[in-house]
């Protein structure tokens, strides 16, 4: 069983987000980067699935600054890692790099987080699947493997769906698929010496260009309503905000 887990390096969930004065770029100084929480779920699942004799490779598209996050993934239990040496330009770029890698190094399963904490797109797993012509189950809450098919539970509008897919496939892990694993001392020690290969990117057509960032307008000061005077709350909201 060969499993590939796609990981991204994202600002810590408590990080304050700041941009350069022209709003063109994210300021990473002073920001701690972490393994994307959903990718961590995917990785934990992969490590569980491979426990009976399999190999888990983590792959990241990024420059050398992502290596601490890659080492963290190795400490959690991946066997080896690949870094495609290029900044993650957009999701099509990232997905193409990973799909090209898989064409040369076939796997049984590709696990991703269902979205990343920076772009929140959920696009990379789907694009990888489309580029490889295989199924993708996004928002997957559980994954059960039997011979050459997998059964997954996934979230849909107002409910859930149970699907069967043949191997290989891509899944986007949601909460519930696995428990987060905390690396132990042995994992951390062995992560230092596990293989991490760095490979060059392939050329990819440019379809989108990042323009700028902006922050949501701050809310006006909160209006306190006494707990004894809530009878008119909805009328107040209707009259003042016209949203209901």
């Amino acid at each position: 069983m060969k499993i590939l887990v796609c990981i991204s390096n994202v600002p810590d969930t408590t990080a304050k987000i700041n941009f350069t004065p022209d709003n063109k770029e994210f300021v990473s100084a002073g920001v701690t980067f972490i393994l994307n929480p959903y990718d961590e779920i995917a990785l934990s699942k992969a490590v569980d699935l491979a426990a009976g004799g399999g190999n888990v490779t983590v792959i990241n598209v990024g420059d050398a600054s992502t290596e601490p996050t890659i080492r963290k993934a190795l400490a959690i239990g991946a066997n080896d890692a690949v870094r495609i040496n290029a900044p993650a330009r957009d999701s099509f770029f990232v997905a193409t790099q990973i799909a090209e890698y898989v064409k040369k190094n076939p796997v049984d399963m590709i696990l991703c987080g269902r979205e990343s904490a920076d772009h929140n797109g959920s696009t990379v797993p789907v694009m990888i699947a489309e580029l490889l012509g295989i199924p993708c189950v996004l928002f997957a809450k559980s994954l059960l493997l039997e011979a050459n098919t997998a059964t997954l539970d996934c979230e849909i509008e107002g409910g859930k769906q149970v699907v069967n897919v043949p191997l290989p496939f891509v899944a986007g892990a949601s909460e519930g698929m696995a428990e987060w694993k905390i690396p132990n001392m042995r994992g951390i020690m062995s992560a230092r010496t596990k293989p991490l290969s760095v490979i060059d990117p392939v050329d990819v057509a440019v379809h989108t260009r990042h323009h700028s960032f902006d922050k949501p307008a701050t809310r006006s000061a909160v209006k306190m309503v006494s707990a004894d005077a809530v009878e008119q709350l909805f009328e107040l909201i209707r009259d003042e905000k016209k949203v209901i």
Binding site: P11, T13, I17, F19, D90, A117, D118, H119, N120, G121, V206, H207, T208, R209, H210, H211, S212, F213, D214, K215, P216
Partner: peptide, 20 residues
């Protein structure tokens, strides 16, 4: 053709141009 999206989990907006 410049679109507006959420970024950084609701902490910011990103503007992105589609060139194709």
């Amino acid at each position: 053709f410049v679109v507006k999206k959420n970024a950084y989990s609701g902490k910011a907006y990103a503007y992105c141009e589609v060139l194709s």
